[in-house]
Design a protein around this nucleic acid. Structure first.
Lengths: 312, 312
DNA sequence: ATGAAAGCGCTAACAC
DNA sequence: GTGTTAGCGCTTTCAT
């Protein structure tokens, strides 16, 4: 593969000159520029980004960690991050952790080794040291939808979990539900606890306590749409109809939630927008000094559809 | 951030020695190794992968291009690719193209510039020059689920589209359907044409021709599950019940296809397995000489569920 | 306006 | 066993 020096030779100029025309910097005589451009075109030369990165001490890449790409929420998040990154000339390295501590740490190290300029964390395990690992190595971090963490350094893009859960519980309560349960996350995800806590707080405000067994609940609030969907599936296969026998509420408003066969009542979260914001945030931080230290709470409105109704 | 030379200094040895202990190569005296390891531990030193890549003339990274991460098929594909890559110490750079020629080309150039060791293409636009661009620059390519292309160099991991469509059409035909239509891809995707062609061939074998207007068809074969789902939604909102009034068949067998509220008859494709295979293939090719030149056809069995039945 | 030379952080011969 | 010396392909002063 042609190198800069090959172009220089071919065009009969020095490396610096070639470098200058490539980057459009400095002044280059019109004629010289033509010669260089011709040499580039003839060889199909493309500058080596690795060499550039080494010299620039910046990879122009960011890392993205998601627990599960297969969950449309994270897929959309990834799309948002990528769009933000792409627009700024950054590449994105994706790590799929499944909330496994070991995988998370491996991903953090891989990101550090590759000198990514920042990382967006879409979800992490309960006691994850991934953020600390990154931060301690000077890598800017933005947590999205993952809530607080006992560290002020990472930026945050989040839903207003408390407001959302209050709206969910109010809706169910207004409908007449009193026996409400929570469907927790299968993975031990950090955000999982927060939603449950917010849910319980909203219940407590009405003098209620969560119902622990699915069988006796008249309404179920799921950690996210995927869990809500799975519950609908499970319940209906067992003969309990939704919403006739049980009401169900999700979280995320995945594209499928509005499907005619589903019509899930849920909390809307614009994953792509959150990802885009987070990506832009972390890149901005990388360009400037270090930490992000910005937090943005996105609105998370309740979308009432057909899986909730008054208890029978 | 600490560099190798800093460790050398701190441990009172030369760079080579540090390099030797890091890579576990060559023989290093036990005591020397301790000193070096202590220096590494004390500084939290991590070797710079960019510098290594420059020297090794290999990035230890592969590119992945997908039209739409939001489509669970591609999300699963990405998971498979990543698992294969991660297991071999490779990073994956993801590009989300939406089958837009411009984006595809930009992605190809970005990959070339970053000197990825190979790229897995999960889907591309109809006349895409993305593969040629990559291949001409010596980057091994594996096409997955994208079918043939007028170039022998890329490796291929694919469904058996013809067999699958034959099974689909036979199923519908056996049920008594004679007016069958095809729901094409919204994007001008390369694979889209192939499925339609295979579909039409299977129809032709039975002396049938595709019905072009959705309104008069008794059965609809969709390019993929997402289109099938969308059609169900659209049709049922308009008052036409599935399968009572129209039968619908998808392609992919997304997790949601088996949901109790959906029960889509579809063709099963193991996207994660395909991705895994493709990732491994391209990395193997990268490690050896150049082209992949391997093709693997995965079985794509028809899964009959509840969206197909005899016409009413 | 152009070129020479040093250096980014590492690995790889090759000495010692 | 350990150190020295060149690069890897680029950018960047600093001369000219």
């Amino acid at each position: 593969m042609a190198r800069l020096v090959d172009i220089a030779e071919r065009a009969g100029v020095s490396k610096s000159t070639v470098s200058n025309v490539i980057r459009g910097s400095a002044l280059v005589a019109e004629e010289t520029r033509r010669k260089v451009e011709r040499a580039i075109a003839e060889t199909g030369y493309r500058p080596n980004a690795i060499a550039r990165s080494l010299q620039a001490r910046s990879s122009n890449a960011i890392g993205l960690v998601v627990p599960d790409l297969t969950n449309p929420f994270f897929a959309q998040l990834a799309v948002g991050v990528e769009r933000a990154a792409g627009a700024l000339g950054f590449a994105v390295l994706t790590a799929h952790t499944e909330c496994a501590a070991e995988t998370e740490n491996a991903a953090a190290l891989a990101f550090i080794d590759r000198r990514v300029d920042g990382v967006v964390i879409g979800g992490l395990s309960l006691g994850a040291l991934l953020p600390k690992l990154l931060l301690d190595h000077g890598v800017p971090v933005v947590l999205v939808g993952a809530g607080e963490i006992d560290d002020a350094r990472p930026g945050v893009v989040d839903h207003d979990t408390d407001a959302a859960m209050e709206a969910v519980v109010r809706h169910l309560h207004d409908l007449g539900h009193r026996r409400i349960g929570f469907l927790a996350h299968a993975l031990r995800e950090h955000a999982g606890e927060r939603r449950r806590l917010a849910f319980e707080a909203a219940l407590a405000r009405r003098g209620l306590r969560p119902v622990s067994t699915e069988a006796t609940a008249t309404a179920l609030v799921a950690h996210d749409d995927l869990h809500a969907l799975a519950a609908m599936d499970r319940l209906e296969r067992a003969g309990r109809l939704v919403p006739d026998d049980v009401s169900i509420v999700g979280f995320d408003d995945l594209p499928l939630a509005s499907h005619q066969r589903i019509q899930l009542t849920t909390v809307r979260a614009d994953a792509a927008a959150m990802g885009h914001r987070a990506g832009a945030m972390v890149i901005t931080a990388a360009s400037r000094g270090r930490p992000v230290a910005e937090r943005e709470i996105m609105p998370s409105p309740l979308v009432i559809r057909a899986t909730t109704r008054a208890p029978g």
